[in-house]
């Protein structure tokens, strides 16, 4: 289980994850905001559709792809939360990919 050891004084923001409002710390990574609120699944595997979650936390595995404010394929471990940000876990798989704007 993930847990925060953060000192208390930082500014809080509210973001939504799959439509549910959660409290996060300004400047926190989107991944840690999700994980601390129990949302550890980020995307689905391309063929099997199996659940995937962040692996490297530093931008080199692309397992943490989510949609942020409507933009797909954003790395949750690299992006930082801002007030009102809307995050959704990414449902794109091989079968849905063709309809999306991914280049």
């Amino acid at each position: 289980m993930f847990q925060s050891l953060r000192k208390p004084e930082r500014d809080r923001v509210t973001i939504t994850v799959n439509g549910h409002p959660i409290e996060a710390i300004a400047g926190q990574s989107v991944w840690s905001a999700m994980a601390l609120n129990g949302q550890t699944i980020t995307r689905r595997a391309a063929l099997s559709g199996e659940d995937r979650s962040a692996y490297c936390a530093m931008g080199v595995c692309f397992e943490c792809l989510v949609e942020i404010d409507g933009l797909p394929n954003q790395q949750a471990c690299l992006r930082r939360v801002t007030e009102g940000m809307a995050v959704t876990t990414q449902e794109i798989t091989e079968t849905t990919e063709a309809t999306n704007a991914g280049l």
């Binding site: 289980m1 993930f2 847990q3 925060s4 050891l5 953060r6 000192k7 710390i25 926190q28 990574s29 840690s32 994980a35 601390l36």
Partner: peptide, 8 residues
């Protein structure tokens, strides 16, 4: 970066 740990 986020003072986040995984217990156990």
């Amino acid at each position: 970066s986020d003072a986040m740990v995984a217990k156990g």
